[in-house]
């Protein structure tokens, strides 16, 4: 029973903070709400017995990516006054469109309640099993992702330079 309430709480926090990211006027508040959302998603990972992913999620998203966002927002000196506004008509259209998408996504779930999934190893999220999969079955993609990082790093430095010849 306890787990159910924890799930309700985390789900409420994540949906609420995600909504606040979209509707907040001040970009700094958006970043802070997004960090809150990421922490609640990390809580979901712990609940799902994926402790390694929870740790990596907090370190990479809340630690690295959001600090980058915060730096850029403070560098560009964005605040409520500089925030551009869409017309009410376009906002209404955006709400209708995403609402319809939600209806479709939830509608496809109908009838799936009775489906049964075969049960495998319950400790799949522990570091030992995850490492075994990562370094046995997915060794090549793992190495290729290091090249991706190198390319992203070179690209970011090149774009950030003052003069591009």
């Amino acid at each position: 029973m306890m787990i159910k309430y924890i799930f309700y709480f985390l789900a409420f926090v994540s949906v609420f903070s995600a909504l606040m990211v979209v509707v907040s006027k001040n970009p700094v508040h958006c970043v802070l709400y997004l960090i809150m959302c990421f922490f609640s998603i990390a809580g979901h990972y712990v609940l799902l017995n994926a402790q390694f992913l929870a740790a990596v999620h907090v370190i990479v998203y809340a630690g690295a990516i959001m600090v980058l966002f915060l730096f850029v927002i403070m560098l560009l000196n964005l605040n409520t006054q500089s925030e551009p506004h869409k017309s009410t008509w376009l906002k209404f259209a955006a709400a209708i469109t995403s609402g319809l998408l939600l209806v479709i996504l939830v509608g496809t779930l109908k009838g799936s309640e009775t489906m049964v999934m075969p049960v495998g190893n319950p400790n799949a999220g522990l570091i030992k099993n995850l490492g075994n999969t990562l370094f046995k079955d997915f060794l090549l993609p793992f190495e290729v992702s290091s090249i991706l990082f190198l390319v992203a790093m070179v690209g970011a430095v090149m774009l950030g330079k003052k003069e591009i010849k």
Binding site: H44, Y45, L48, N49, A50, F52, L53, M117, P118, V119, G120, N121, P122, A124, G125, N129, L130, N132, T133, L134, D137, F138
Partner: peptide, 14 residues
């Protein structure tokens, strides 16, 4: 992650 945990397969988390 949810699918991977319910299925008991580490590949989803990778």
């Amino acid at each position: 992650t949810a699918f991977s945990s319910y299925r008991g397969d580490s590949a989803g988390q990778v």
